[in-house]
Amino acid sequence: MMRILAFFIFLTSSPAVEPLPAERIQAAAAFSAAHGGHALLIKQNGKTLHESYTNGHTKREPHRIYSGTKAFWCLTAFAAEKDGVLRLDEPVSETITEWQGDKQRRNITIRQLLDFSSGLEPLFGLHENEYKDRTVSALKASLVGTTGKSFIYGPASLQVYHELLGRKLREKKTTPTRYLERKVLGPLDLGSQRYLPDQKGTPLLAAGFMQTARQWCELGSWLLKHEEMVSQVKTSATNRAYGFGFWNNHAAEAASAREVDVEDMLDKKWHEQSWRNACLCRSAPADLIACVGSYGQRLYIVPSMKLVIVRLAYDKKPDDAHMLRLLFERR
């Protein structure tokens, strides 16, 4: 009987995951610290393999995660679809009715707002603190690209999504921010965040959150426990390396894969960017996904290795490919 039980346990146990070698972790930590790193946290199988703070920073110090904020707001869309509040592929104009008479805008879907394929101009000025009215500006944003075919990364599409979600939630007598806190931040044991409201009280969805390395790591750990959510982070039809607030390394498996510095590429005008066959690092696992924030803020998640990596920094020239190569390249 004991042999049968042991055999059953063997069959049902999760496959062993090879731990990251200590020497690779130390090499990555040294590289991070030498390039403006403030914090590096690495967890695998729920256990902390490495946690270090450099250049005078501490584990209790919240840090700007910049565009890492986007992923939290995008997760509200999955929750809202599950709750029957919206359908990702429904036209925005069903709710933003003032778009119904606009031939250019009336067929834009919610999914296209969130994967930046709506064609709307980015309107980076919306990032400004104390902006007068982000909603009015976003709803009037020019359509400068082809809907469904142009990848245009910027805050305008997300601010349109916020207005849409707000109108959807009125019947439930709640707001997008309260919905975010209940459906996304709450399960992560995170409270209210820094929302950078405009003069009308509308939060900035593209950036603003401040978190410690341990707090941001909770998002990665939660996703590892809910891998069905990772599968929902589908790539954009216009940029296979991006979807719903997360960058990915899918193309790394292809012979034609090319490593792209995301921050450097995003500094270019949208029509000058090239994302064809883009990956973060050819040596890293293809199932790696990442939140990428300005100046080296990173949350890497590798489901196949049960691995979460957080880096906080002030790094003017972050090099994902090099750091990931230090961690994953077999020598």
Rank of each mutant, 00 (worst) to 15 (best):
K132A: 14
L86Q: 04
L219V: 05
L219A: 04
D115Y: 02
M1G: 11
T147H: 05
E128S: 13
R134W: 03
F7M: 15
A77C: 08
N45L: 09
I9L: 13
L164E: 06
T174S: 05
T147V: 11
L327P: 04
L20R: 11
G46V: 05
E259V: 01
V233A: 10
M305P: 10
L326T: 00
L113A: 06
Q215M: 00
T177V: 15
Q104L: 13
S283D: 15
F8Y: 09
V302A: 07
A6T: 10
R64Q: 08
R330G: 07
V302L: 10
L299V: 06
R64A: 12
V17G: 06
A39Q: 07
H250Q: 13
W216H: 15
S274F: 06
E171I: 05
L224I: 02
F124E: 14
K200A: 04
R60T: 14
T95K: 04
A286Y: 10
A237L: 11
L165K: 04
L75Q: 15
E98S: 14
N277C: 03
K173R: 11
E259K: 05
A27M: 07
A34E: 13
S32T: 07
P187A: 05
I65F: 03
G243V: 01
D320M: 06
W99M: 01
S231I: 02
R331F: 10
A138H: 01
A34D: 12
F151M: 00
E90K: 05
P15M: 13
Q159M: 08
A237K: 12
Q100P: 04
E181N: 07
T202A: 12
F7V: 09
A22L: 14
L123W: 03
L41R: 13
A254H: 13
A6S: 12
P197Q: 10
K225W: 02
E61A: 12
H35K: 12
Y153Q: 04
T97V: 15
L5C: 06
L40D: 10
V308C: 14
W73D: 09
D320L: 07
S150P: 08
S274W: 02
F72L: 09
P21M: 02
R325V: 01
Y53Q: 12
Q199H: 06
E18P: 03
G119R: 09
E218C: 01
N239H: 06
L123M: 12
M229I: 13
A80S: 08
A278K: 02
A79F: 05
Y153H: 07
R276K: 11
L312M: 13
Y314N: 14
